[in-house]
Simulated scan of single mutants.
Amino acid sequence: MIPFNKPFLTGKETIYIEQAVQSGKISGNGIFTQKCQQFFQDKYGFKKCLLTTSCTDALEMTAMLINCVPGDEIIVPSYTFVSSALAFIRQGAKIIFADSMSDHPNIDCNTIETLITSKTKAIVVVHYAGTAVDMDKIMELANRYNLIVIEDAAQAVDSFYKGKALGSIGHLAAFSFHETKNIISGEGGMLAVNDNRFMERAEIIWEKGTNRASFFRGEINKYGWVDTGSSFLPSEVIAAFLYAQLENLEVIQQRRKEIWNVYYEKLSDLQLKDKLKLPNIPDYASNNAHMFYILCKSFEERSQLIQFLKKQNIHAVFHYISLHKSDYYTKENSVPELPCSDKYTDCLLRLPFYYELKDEQQQTIIRSIKDFYNYA
């Protein structure tokens, strides 16, 4: 079976983990945590980075930072992972779901203004497949209506919008280092803070509501409980693993882009024949090769293709089920009409994609897809 995903190890993960253990400090905010945070701040221009145990944790921190309370409304794309909405639901907010674009799963910026009310506090944008949302439009809306922008950049490490790193444009951003991402630590995430309003408080929330970090820097003579928060720090074991990956970022990205380009080139004739659609990368966006997906014409066709590929020992998978139609949401809310989100729910199929995918395996996948569409 050609798996959908296979975590890639650079070889130094266990070496750095051993160093972390032998250092005598394996709880959070040690040397490897600080190295990882500094890496992102230096390379991508994030003002402040805080590692977390997951992207979900980073999103929950954003909900706390913006003082999300019952009665607030948060605009979120429906075609996304549940964490994009759940972080704010937990604070009592109401989620207002937005549709995707007709030619990309990203949020349709042209529909957002109609969703804004006096209760709207923030817009959450998800850079699906690492492809940028049109951030000029988003930030213009945010400035006009005095809203906070949170970039869910779970899939967007090393991806850019008009030359600016994703996660550096909104007021806050959340990243994932889950084993399915380009850069991994098994589980893991990061909060990026780009607005000075949130800088100091982010660290307090990160440290269980205490000013402990300031104490260890010698800025205060004692620390205590000063705000809300939780235990969001990952251990040094996770950070050590992540740092080994970051050292190999360029190599990992180069190989992933090679795989992405082969898929696109070899399947483009099927798109020309109107058999399927391939990913669309807007001019303003870069491609970080997070995933490769195709769009089938119907739910039935996609289901048949999944089964066909399974018989060829190829594991291809669909992705999100629109949150506006989830059991949890529909229990207490009416279902909005979001046809594009529904289309991606029914028709999007992700192909096997990982660093160690062999050329011959990729050719087998491509050939099998063409066989399914009776196109050699």
Rank of each mutant, 00 (worst) to 15 (best):
V124D: 02
Y79H: 09
E250G: 04
Q307V: 00
F308M: 11
F177V: 12
S84G: 01
D371R: 03
C347M: 04
F160I: 04
Y328I: 08
I123S: 03
A192T: 08
E187T: 15
L272K: 15
E360C: 15
A20I: 10
D152H: 09
M64F: 14
D99E: 09
K311T: 10
A239N: 11
F40P: 01
N211D: 11
T56H: 06
I306H: 08
Q254H: 10
V76A: 04
W260K: 06
I294K: 00
Q254A: 14
N110R: 11
Q361C: 07
A285H: 12
K370L: 00
K181V: 01
Q361I: 03
F46N: 00
F177R: 05
E332T: 09
S168W: 00
E113I: 13
K277F: 04
G167A: 12
K257N: 14
A376R: 05
W225H: 10
I252L: 12
Q271S: 15
F160D: 03
V149K: 02
G189S: 07
T210Q: 12
P77Q: 06
F175C: 05
N196Y: 13
M190E: 11
A213N: 12
S368W: 01
L115N: 13
I138L: 09
L9T: 08
K275L: 12
S341A: 11
Y16C: 09
V126S: 05
R367W: 01
I138R: 02
T210E: 11
S78Q: 09
Y243V: 12
G188Y: 09
K343R: 12
Y284L: 14
Q22T: 11
Q307Y: 12
C347S: 06
A285S: 14
I96F: 14
G189C: 07
K208R: 03
Q22P: 08
I75V: 13
V193N: 05
V126F: 03
K325G: 06
A93Y: 00
N288K: 02
S176Y: 06
I150L: 01
I169V: 12
Y354P: 09
V69D: 07
P282C: 15
K325S: 11
V317P: 10
V149W: 01
L295K: 02
M199N: 08
